[in-house]
């Protein structure tokens, strides 16, 4: 996984866990919430981006690494605050573009030179300048597919269900509210401690998020 710098300690947490159910054991074996539904994490709600980013920074400094912010629009400072600054998407797009360009050119080369050489106006079979426009279009086409599909795959979308949707007020994450989550499978996560800590972050309210 080249997604993140391995030296960054968050690297292995970069993708949100596709199988959140194993967190259940984590939460219960720590002796909290026995008998309650499995815990995904603890969520704090904020009503402006400044508070959210400040809280995210403090949470990161506190040592939590499996944290995530949710906001109605992209906030550059937020992904920095949760320690997520790298993505391999540009590399994927570059590879897509190179493959598209080579594929586009050699498709024409193979068809016009090898498979069915046809004399058109006395031009050479490999009349490469005439192949450039289509080569260019194929480059852009494949690179664009790489950008869109790469983004969706790295983000693990489409994903119709996710535990955060259970949180109260979370529907406002697409309107005007901001959320910060410490996930239950964070190595240093302890339920009460985490709740206590999040209450000091200046949010509106703090809630458990169940799976």
């Amino acid at each position: 996984m080249a997604e993140d710098d391995p030296k960054d300690e968050t690297w292995e947490h970069d993708l949100e866990d596709p199988e959140p159910f194993h967190h259940a054991t984590t939460a219960t074996t720590r002796g909290r919430r026995r008998g309650a539904p499995a815990l995904y994490g603890i969520m704090a709600e904020f009503d402006n981006p400044t508070d959210l980013v400040a809280a995210a920074r403090r949470t990161y400094e506190k040592g939590y690494r499996r944290i995530n912010g949710y906001s109605p629009y992209p906030i550059e400072e937020l992904s920095e605050a949760i320690g997520f600054t790298r993505t391999s998407l540009p590399l994927i797009v570059l590879i897509g573009g190179i493959l598209g360009g080579l594929g586009g050119f050699f498709m024409q080369y193979w068809m016009e030179v090898i498979d069915y050489p046809l004399n058109v106006g006395g031009k050479p079979f490999n009349s490469w300048p005439a192949f450039i426009p289509i080569t260019f279009e194929c480059t852009v086409l494949v690179a664009s597919f790489a950008a869109v599909l790469g983004m969706l795959v790295l983000n693990k979308l489409p994903q119709p269900y996710h535990p955060v949707f259970n949180a109260p007020n979370f529907a406002l994450a697409t309107r005007d509210k901001f959320f910060l989550v410490i996930e239950a499978n964070d190595p240093v996560f302890k339920h009460d401690e985490a709740i206590q800590f999040m209450r000091t972050l200046g949010g509106i309210e703090v809630n458990d998020v169940e799976i």
């Binding site: 970069d14 949100e16 995210a56 995530n68 912010g69 949710y70 906001s71 109605p72 629009y73 992209p74 906030i75 550059e76 937020l78 992904s79 949760i82 997520f84 600054t85 993505t87 998407l89 540009p90 797009v93 573009g97 426009p133 260019f136 279009e137 852009v140 690179a143 664009s144 950008a147 869109v148 790469g150 983004m151 969706l152 790295l154 983000n155 979308l157 489409p158 994903q159 119709p160 269900y161 996710h162 955060v164 949707f165 979370f170 994450a173 697409t174």
Partner: peptide, 30 residues
């Protein structure tokens, strides 16, 4: 597609959007 405004998602989303804009620019001229 299950979009939930995650900061990690936004980060990649912004990158994809910017790259698409960079690809669409020479494309439209071409």
């Amino acid at each position: 597609l299950g979009w939930r405004g995650s900061a990690r998602h936004w980060h990649r989303y912004e990158m994809a959007y910017l790259l698409l804009a960079g690809l669409a620019t020479p494309l439209v001229l071409s």
